[in-house]
Amino acid sequence: MSDAAFPARAATPARTAAPRGRLLDGPAGVAPTRRMNPKRIMVYGGLIVFSLYYLLPLWVMVMTSLKGMPEIRMGNIFAPPMEITFEPWVKAWSQACTGLNCDGLSRGFFNSVAITVPATILSIAVAAVNGYALVNWRFKGSEVFFTILIFGAFIPYQVMIYPIVIILREMGLMGSVWGLVLVHVVFGMPIITLLFRNYFSSLPPELFKAARVDGAGFWGIFLRVLVPMSLPIFTVAVILQVTGIWNDFLFGVIYTRPDSYPMTVQLNNIVNSVQGVREYNVNMAATLLTGLVPLTIYFLSGKLFVRGIAAGAVKG
């Protein structure tokens, strides 16, 4: 998807709108020179040192996951494997034990998919409609509720987790995947609503008025006029929600049972289980498997991911 697809977002405060646009376009100055002077060397040197700090853990993960246990015991965690083996990956996926289950991370993977897909779709659907109502169909008190919603994003989850257990139990959803989906919809609402509210208020109001004159109603305008022109912002929301929900640990461990644990909870149980011989290569393969989905999204989405978190950052 090209950057040209994004219209400028006029409604975001000018101070933040300008840098976001510039960030996506890259630096606007003259092209970099080939000349190397001490200052440039320091700049690149600093960046390379930090890049090593960021990349080494990834390197160590990949290398360890491709080694056999004897080689790990003898060698150096930074060294590439002398003999590449994919056995740890197979074992992490289909045999690693958590408690009584020994069917590997695959169970957690499919649980995470079963949680992430509906939670992403529902939370975005709800938040998009919220944002639309907040911009185009204001009613008395709508801004008050929105302000509460935004401040709610800063309340530590620990304050709300237990009453939610009671609510879910009353609804018969405690321990089920759907209960967790509901929790993700609720806690994803502030940021995604903000995202859509800012986007919709940046669209020209004439669009809305023209559709009204043509006789379109609440849902007609939303589905036929706004949604088709909001694909970029939907993409940003999907990126934000998929990575956020996939990476969740706290809600997963509280609101699901062992057989429906998401991948992060299962990974923690595999790695930090006290009994048994520690198989570091299997642990690292399991870690990579768990990180694979968000990392893939990150590397594929590139600038859209940055845009998503930039939007999230402005929420303060």
Binding site: S51, Y54, L58, N247, T264, L267, N268, T290, G291, L295
Partner: peptide
């Protein structure tokens, strides 16, 4: 105004896409 700005930024930001559980397990190792 450096070269490979996108590359460096991608490297610096990628851990943010990972779960804290993944981060914790890697650093434990």
């Amino acid at each position: 105004k450096i070269r490979f700005e996108d590359g460096f930024r991608t490297i610096i930001l990628f851990p943010y896409a990972l779960s804290f559980i993944v981060t914790g397990v890697v650093w434990q190792w």
